[in-house]
Simulated assay, not measured.
Amino acid sequence: MCSCTYDVTVEATGRRRRATVKDVALEAGVSRGTVSRVLNGQPYVSDEARAAIDAAIAKVGFVPNRAARSLVMQSSQAIGLIVHEPHSLFVEDPNIGSILLGANAALSEAEYQMASLIADSPRDVQRLSHFLGAGLIDGVIIVSARVGDPITQAVAHLGLPAAFVGHPRDIGDAAYVAIDNRAAAREVTTRLVGTGRRRIGMIAAALDRDSGSDRLAGFVDALGHRFDPQLVQSVPLYSFSCGQEGMRALLEREPDIDGVFASSDAVAAGALDVLHAAGRSVPEQVGIVGFDDSSWALRCDPPLSTVHQPATELGRAAAEAVLRQLRGEGAGGPHLLECPIIWRGSA
């Protein structure tokens, strides 16, 4: 039996033979080395030869073998976007989707592929840590990292180009893109106070990461001496169900509450659902504000007053930070984006 390996599929299978670099070179009338230099973005090729090669590629239907190119270039042309959240929140939270789309747009423009990676469990974290060390991606964008996150530690150990969406306190001088969660939370709470509310509570989600803890800090800043820890209910996730859970707990403990800062729009939507079920009119009896200006905000009744989080721009900026590192330009330092207050009918 012959053990030879053929570069193309035989015609007997009925499938079209895959075009090769040799086919492009023959069609363009140049050497295979010249074709390879063009494909790898190398200099010292005349404009005339480049034009002939481009035309030949189109004519013969040549598609580069990226796996083989990666071995030569020591580059996978892929960037991982790691979301350290439960699977359910990955689907429910529109901010994650917007971050993903923004990052993908920037990477696509640079001819990079994005690989979406979800860390839902300790097993996922262990699996991803091994994956990162296998050389299958050139860099990472990390969303929702916590302080002491093992994925962060794995990235640092491997020396991978990385950018964080958000600012965990233990990432050293790694690149990150973020908003000023504390200042925004302070501003939206101050505006809620300005509507005349006297018993303002907070459903404080995700206190194990910088965004959640900073939003609670901003809430405390705004209330000053009026802050009452009994009016804060912590919940684990930025989710609708956690908003319901938090609002029920607040109403049971503090039935005279007349204002609520929910630390995300999804949390606020869940809180509104409970308020409506309890017969509390919004905004007449209880004013409520959220955070994100996501699609949840407009689905609420009444529409939600909130903080606009530029999620798509955050994803794009994080991707661009990783690309800069891959080009040898350095991390570029922190990148803070504006997050204005959007005032609607809920307060």
Rank of each mutant, 00 (worst) to 15 (best):
V188K: 12
V188P: 03
T189H: 12
T190E: 09
R191F: 14
V193R: 00
G196I: 10
G196K: 05
R198Q: 15
R198W: 00
R198G: 15
R198L: 06
R199A: 12
I203P: 00
L207V: 06
D208H: 02
D208F: 00
D210G: 06
D210P: 02
G212W: 09
S213V: 13
D214H: 15
R215T: 10
R215M: 01
L216D: 01
A217Y: 00
A217Q: 04
A217L: 08
A217I: 04
G218K: 11
A222C: 00
H225K: 04
D228V: 02
P229I: 02
P229D: 07
Q230N: 14
L231P: 03
V232M: 00
Q233T: 06
S234Q: 09
P236F: 05
P236N: 10
L237F: 08
L237I: 11
Y238D: 02
Y238Q: 05
Y238R: 13
Y238G: 03
S239R: 01
S239G: 13
F240I: 09
F240R: 06
S241V: 11
C242S: 14
G243K: 03
G243C: 13
G243L: 03
Q244I: 10
E245D: 14
E245F: 06
E245M: 15
G246V: 04
M247A: 13
M247S: 00
R248C: 10
R248F: 04
A249E: 09
A249R: 08
L250Q: 04
L251G: 06
E252M: 07
E254H: 07
E254I: 05
P255N: 00
I257C: 13
D258Q: 09
D258N: 13
V260A: 07
F261K: 08
S263F: 06
D265Q: 05
D265L: 08
D265G: 12
D265F: 14
A266E: 10
A266C: 05
V267E: 14
V267G: 11
V267Y: 10
A268H: 10
A269F: 08
A269L: 07
A271D: 05
A271C: 07
V274W: 01
L275I: 01
H276V: 06
A277G: 07
A278T: 02
A278L: 07
S281W: 10
V282N: 00
V282R: 12
P283K: 15
